[in-house]
Computed example of a mutant assay.
Amino acid sequence: MENKKLERDTTLEEIKKLADESDKNSGFQLGLETDFEEELIQLDLINDKQNPSESFRLFYAIEGILRTHLPPKSESEFSTFVREEKNIFLTGGKKKDASGRRGADPRQAYITTHLEVTLNELLRWMQEGGTKFDLFLIFRDLNIKYGYYKENELDKVDQTK
């Protein structure tokens, strides 16, 4: 058991180093997040229903924030880790299979329980001035909280290309 803990700490430490490196190399703002900065979205689980235009708006607001705060995926291994955790959460725990297929589309995530939760967490992260490693942990912790990792997967950090 201690060996698995050591492996997880090492892996998370590597991701933290990547995040710290990314923090040093950032410094631009696109301003895409300003539409949502005024207030956190109030969750309404009772009236949750499918709304493609709202899903589209929320998903691309999330993507805009990530695009603003993360280096391009092609240039950063760290961005790949963050985006994979985000996609696992938004697809209700669907991970890519051996062929690279997820079997779900994060753009069609549940609005109240996933898209709004994600956007609120990102807004909170920005307001608190969190680090990029904190950004990774937001999605990782949501995946753990929602039960999207089995006990034997908690020590793994997937990196999909």
Rank of each mutant, 00 (worst) to 15 (best):
G100N: 06
F36Y: 15
E116G: 07
K24C: 02
G92D: 05
G31L: 09
G27E: 05
E21M: 06
F59E: 02
R8Y: 08
L45G: 09
F56Y: 15
F89T: 02
F56L: 14
L66G: 04
D155P: 00
T160Q: 02
E128V: 03
T11R: 15
I15Y: 01
T11P: 00
E77I: 13
E128C: 03
K145D: 15
K95R: 08
R101L: 15
K132C: 00
G64V: 05
R67M: 07
T113W: 02
S26W: 08
M1T: 03
R57M: 10
Q29W: 08
S76H: 08
E85S: 04
R102D: 01
E21D: 14
G27F: 11
A19S: 08
K96D: 04
S99Q: 12
Y148G: 07
N87E: 15
P106E: 14
G31A: 06
L137Y: 02
E75W: 08
E153H: 10
N87G: 13
I111R: 01
N152R: 15
L122N: 02
I62P: 02
E75Q: 14
T68H: 03
L18G: 10
K150P: 02
Q29T: 13
H114M: 05
I144D: 03
L12K: 10
L43T: 13
K73E: 13
E33L: 06
T11D: 03
G93M: 12
M1S: 11
E13G: 14
V82W: 03
W125K: 02
V157M: 12
G147K: 05
M126F: 00
E128T: 04
E151K: 14
H69P: 00
E151C: 03
P72Q: 07
T131P: 00
K94P: 05
E21Y: 09
L32A: 09
E75F: 14
K132M: 02
I41D: 04
K5Q: 14
I62W: 04
L123V: 11
K156G: 00
A19P: 01
H69A: 01
L32F: 11
H114T: 05
D105V: 05
L154Q: 12
R107D: 03
R8S: 10
T160Y: 11
L122Y: 03
D134E: 13
K96T: 03
N3R: 14
Y146P: 00
D35C: 04
L40G: 11
E33W: 07
S79M: 04
G92C: 06
T10Q: 11
P71W: 06
K95H: 09
I41A: 04
S26V: 12
